[in-house]
């Protein structure tokens, strides 16, 4: 199996780079999108609560593969409108379409994790905020948000790993991540070991990530 790795070293390394960049970008952008949705879900009042609930139901209810096709092939149908809006460069590119689908999907899952950790904060802390006369914004920024994030870390770490695995679906829309390179090398050589080499990559990536996340969690034990 090693020879197959060294024969196609450049391909594997570039695949690794694409997988890593997709995972990191998607988790970060997804977090930015998930934060307001998660807060709206935790408040669960008014129009924002309904919209946030609809978002979560919609994007968690469909398979990522379908969302991916919806964005990538669906956008092609509106190419004329997108061109006139000046957005075509974005939807023409499989990388951006894949990234968008990943972000929309992971934001729904991360929002639920954030909601859970916000709702889990004991009411005594909210009462202490009120007793200290903190404004709602200060209370959120200095007290509730740090606690919620520290509590959400195990869940978010899990989501990180699930997202890393999910990026492999993008190979179907011609992205050359690890999975895409494995498919390419398999089509060149008809050597099934290409998939095993890719599997080894994912295995190592996930094991390293799990180790890192455990270390980070230990530092945040105060929030539990």
């Amino acid at each position: 199996m090693l020879d197959l790795w060294f024969d196609y070293k450049d391909l594997w390394l570039s695949g690794l780079k694409v997988t890593a960049s997709l995972t990191l970008l998607a988790i970060l952008l997804g977090f930015v999108l998930a934060l307001p949705i998660g807060v709206a879900r935790a408040r669960n009042r008014g129009l924002s609560g309904v919209l946030a609930y609809g978002y979560v139901i919609f994007f968690r209810g469909m398979p990522l593969l379908v969302l991916l096709f919806l964005v990538y092939y669906g956008a092609g149908e509106f190419s004329r409108d997108l061109r006139s809006l000046g957005l075509w460069w974005f939807f023409r590119d499989a990388y951006y379409c894949g990234l968008l689908a990943l972000v929309l999907n992971t934001a729904a899952y991360q929002a639920e994790i954030i909601r859970g950790s916000l709702n889990g904060i004991p009411s005594s802390i909210r009462e202490a905020n009120a007793a200290l006369n903190l404004t709602r914004w200060t209370a959120f920024r200095r007290v509730l948000f740090p606690i919620a994030i520290a509590r959400a870390l195990p869940g978010l770490g899990n989501e990180f790993i699930l997202l890393l695995k999910a990026t492999s679906l993008l190979a179907i829309i011609t992205i050359f991540d690890l999975m895409g390179q494995a498919r390419f090398i398999f089509s060149e050589t008809f050597d099934l070991r290409a998939y095993y080499v890719a599997a080894l990559h994912y295995l190592v990536l996930v094991l390293v990530l799990e180790w890192l996340l455990r270390r980070i969690e230990r530092r945040n034990a105060w929030a539990a």
Partner: peptide
Amino acid sequence: LTHVAALAINTTREPFFFYLVIAAIYI
């Protein structure tokens, strides 16, 4: 379901509509 949608799109050229329909079915 997903495969049938892809087949339907091959002949009808309506990807957005069909993927939205099966997304609704999954949901």
